[in-house]
Amino acid sequence: MGTRILAVEDDERIRAAVKLALEDEGWQVEEAANGEEALLSFAQAPTDVVLIDIMLPDIDGFEVCRAIRRTSDVPIVMVTARDDTHDVVAGLEAGADDYMTKPFAPKELSARIRALLRRVRTSEPGNLHLRFGDLEVVPDEGVVRRGGADVHLTKTEFKLLVELASSPGRVFSREILLDKVWGYDYFGDGRLVDVHVRRLRTKVEADPANPRHVVTVRGLGYKLQT
């Protein structure tokens, strides 16, 4: 069985065309015309990726995103009509992993989906355990513990943390993180990194306002403090 994408879009024609194009790319596409249908469909069948239009008639896209995030770490791609800061940041803060702005090329969307589905790669084989103070990362098992308790991260948050943990103390620029985590070239949106770092901190930091692990290096990027 192929990878199953749930496409939530209220415009019938767009939905049909996107489904055709994505199926051409080899994905299996499930359609939902509104938020309620989307949540129902998500609960009924296993889904690998969710594509949500922010402008939905009943429950808006942000709310659908938050509802899915409460139960799942499935990769979510938001579709926005505008690339305004407000919509993009709000979508990412609602839990989306990436976003696309209409009108996008389905090939580009496919590339994004492939990048999101890519598994975490570690350079060293074997059961690697990384420790940073009270933080413990096991890349191969996809496990993060803080003070011994499991921390639940989305796939993208986890990839981001593992990437930073691969060279503790090294400063990663936004461009490098966009490339390594999201598969973007130089022109990715730095806000993806910023919002994900913010989300990551709320989970791995004792005090997210004064991070001790994932710290900002002003003007340069982020690093994981040892």
């Binding site: 415009d11 024609r13 767009i14 049909a16 996107v18 009108p103 389905p106």
Partner: peptide, 12 residues
């Protein structure tokens, strides 16, 4: 919106 439909359809 129509451009989105066009863009996806033309790709197919």
């Amino acid at each position: 919106s129509p451009l989105m439909t066009l863009s996806a359809s033309i790709e197919v």
